[in-house]
C-alpha cells in the first residue's frame, strides 16, 4: 500500500520532471548544448503565474477553471517569449563557436536570471506563498489518498506529451525541427530557415517549462528565485537518463526519476540521501547504457 501511494506521488512529480526534461532535450536536439538557463525559465513561469493570478482571478473568481487556464496560457506565453529572447541575444551570436563556449554562456544566463530575480527591485529573495489556482481536493480510494492536483498534473502532462508528439511528428514545423536536429546544414540547403526553427524550439520548450514551473510551485510551500535549480537539475538528469535529444526518452526518464525519488524519499534511512539518489541512478544507468535508456549509441567516424 505504501508503495502504491508513493508510486502515485512519484508519477505526479515525475511528470513535472518530464515536462522540464522535454525542454532540455529539444534544445539539445537542435543546438547540441545543455541550456542551463532552462531551470530559471521555469522559475519565471511560476512567478508570472504568481503575479497574473490576482488580476485574472479578480475577473473570473478565485479557483475557477477558465481563470486557471488563462493563467497557464499567459505564463507559458511570457516564458516562450523569454526563451526566444535569450536564444537571440545570448546563444545566436555563438552559433558556430565551440559548444563549451555556449555551455558557459548558458551558465552565465542562468546566473543572470537568478541574481536579477533575487534583487529586491525584481522579485526579492524571500519565499512567497503560491496562490491556489485550482480547487484542491483529496480523493480516497480505499486506503489510498490521491490529491486532485496530482491527477490534474498527470492528465495535463499526458495531454501535452500527446500534443508535442503531434507537433513534432505530424506538422510541417515539427518535420523541420527533426530535419534541423538530424543535420542543420542539409536542412538549411533544403530551404528550412534554421533560425525560425530554433526560435520555435526554444518557445515550445520554455512554454512547457512554464507549465511545469506552475505545477511545481503548486506542490511546494512557496516560490523564490532559486526554486528552479533543484527540479531543473533533476529534469536535466532525466533527459540524460532517457538519452538526450530523444523526446520519449526525456518523458520516460522524468517519470522513472520521479517514482524512484518518491519511493526512496519514503524509506527510513534512505530519505536523507534523497538528493544524491537521482545522481546515483544517473551514474548507474550511464555506466551500463552510455547513450541513455532510449538513446542510440553512435560509433565515432574517423
Amino acid at each position: 500500500m505504501f508503495y502504491i501511494q508513493q508510486l502515485i506521488n512519484g508519477l505526479a512529480l515525475g511528470s513535472i520532471y518530464a515536462l522540464i526534461a522535454l525542454g532540455y532535450t529539444m534544445v539539445y536536439g537542435v543546438l547540441r548544448f545543455i541550456n542551463f538557463a532552462h531551470s530559471d525559465i521555469l522559475m519565471v513561469g511560476a512567478f508570472a503565474a504568481f503575479f497574473l493570478a490576482p488580476g485574472i482571478q479578480g475577473i473570473f473568481g478565485p479557483e475557477s477553471i477558465p481563470g486557471a487556464l488563462l493563467i497557464f496560457f499567459f505564463s507559458a506565453l511570457i516564458c516562450a517569449l523569454l526563451g526566444v529572447l535569450i536564444e537571440m541575444l545570448a546563444y545566436r551570436p555563438l552559433r558556430n563557436r565551440p559548444k563549451l563556449t555556449v555551455l558557459i554562456t548558458a551558465i552565465g544566463v542562468s546566473l543572470f536570471l537568478e541574481f536579477t530575480c533575487q534583487h529586491k527591485g525584481v522579485f526579492g529573495s524571500k519565499t512567497r506563498p503560491f496562490p491556489t489556482l485550482i480547487p484542491a481536493q483529496e480523493i480516497h480510494f480505499g486506503e489510498l489518498v490521491v490529491s486532485s492536483n496530482d491527477l490534474v498534473v498527470l492528465i495535463v502532462t499526458l495531454l501535452l506529451l500527446a500534443a508535442l508528439r503531434f507537433i513534432v511528428q505530424r506538422t510541417k514545423i515539427g518535420t523541420a525541427m527533426r530535419a534541423v536536429s538530424f543535420n542543420p546544414q542539409a536542412a538549411a540547403l533544403m530551404g528550412i530557415n534554421i533560425n525560425h526553427i530554433i526560435s520555435f524550439t526554444f518557445a515550445l520548450g520554455s512554454a512547457l517549462a512554464a507549465i511545469a514551473g506552475i505545477f511545481y510551485a503548486m506542490r511546494s510551500p512557496g516560490i523564490e528565485p532559486l526554486m528552479g535549480i533543484q527540479p531543473g537539475l533533476r529534469a536535466f538528469i532525466a533527459a540524460v537518463v532517457g538519452g538526450i535529444g530523444n523526446l520519449p526518452g526525456a518523458a520516460l526518464g522524468g517519470i522513472v526519476l520521479g517514482v524512484i525519488e518518491a519511493i526512496a524519499g519514503g524509506l527510513p534511512g534512505v530519505s536523507n540521501y534523497r538528493d544524491g539518489i537521482a545522481f546515483a541512478i544517473l551514474i548507474l544507468i550511464l555506466l551500463f547504457r552510455p547513450a541513455g535508456l532510449l538513446g542510440k549509441f553512435q560509433a565515432e567516424k574517423v
Binding site: I104, G108, V109, F112, E114, F115, H119
Partner: peptide, 15 residues
C-alpha cells in the same frame, strides 16, 4: 548589483 554584473560579464566575455 554585484552578482548581476558578474554574470553579465561572463556572458559578454563569452560572446
Amino acid at each position: 548589483y554585484r552578482m548581476i554584473i558578474y554574470s553579465l560579464l561572463i556572458i559578454i566575455l563569452m560572446v
